[in-house]
């Protein structure tokens, strides 16, 4: 497939996700696809990825992912996309915060035999938690709640 066709594939992938039409993912993703994040999370298989997306839609019902920039070369497509949603659903026993989280994610996709084989998303999970409201907005370098001098930032796993 050409770089243009691969970029089209990624656009279809985003359209399917935004339409919450997860049953159609098999048309654009390999069954053995992998999804990874820069926070070190790793999901093996399309079923696992579908589960993750379902969870995300339950936690952020108006979640929308929109591509802002894109580049394709050979069997690689990279895109910068905006992830935006309001936390109106509970997650793993934590009540919703009703805060909007909006951030840019830099995504690297590998295409194999015309389908997505691997997606690697880069984003700042600390920034995500600040916006979500599970850590204070002052948890940044120079901020009041930055864990300086041997302190520890308290997170609940």
């Amino acid at each position: 497939m050409t770089a243009q066709e691969n970029k089209e594939l990624i656009r279809r992938f985003f359209n399917i996700l935004n339409a919450r039409d997860l049953n159609r993912l098999g048309g654009v993703c390999r069954e053995d696809m992998t999804y990874r994040t820069s926070a070190g999370d790793s999901y093996q298989g399309l079923d696992s990825f579908r589960e993750l997306m379902n969870e995300s839609f339950q936690t952020f019902s108006d979640l929308e992912m929109s591509i802002e920039e894109m580049a394709g070369e050979g069997d690689k497509v990279t895109c910068l996309y905006r992830w935006s949603g309001v936390n109106d659903g509970g997650y793993q026993g934590m009540p919703p915060t009703n805060q909007r989280v909006e951030l840019l994610v830099n995504s690297f996709c590998a295409v194999e035999d015309g389908k997505i084989a691997d997606v690697f998303d880069f984003f700042d999970s600390l920034g995500f938690m600040r916006q979500l409201g599970v850590v204070s907005s002052d948890v940044q370098p120079g901020g009041e709640d930055w864990p300086r001098g041997g302190e520890k930032l308290r997170l609940y796993s």
Partner: peptide, 13 residues
């Protein structure tokens, strides 16, 4: 684009 939390974890913070 990177995960600042990954840095904090390695700093044992």
């Amino acid at each position: 684009f990177y995960d600042v939390l990954t840095i904090l974890r390695q700093l044992d913070a």
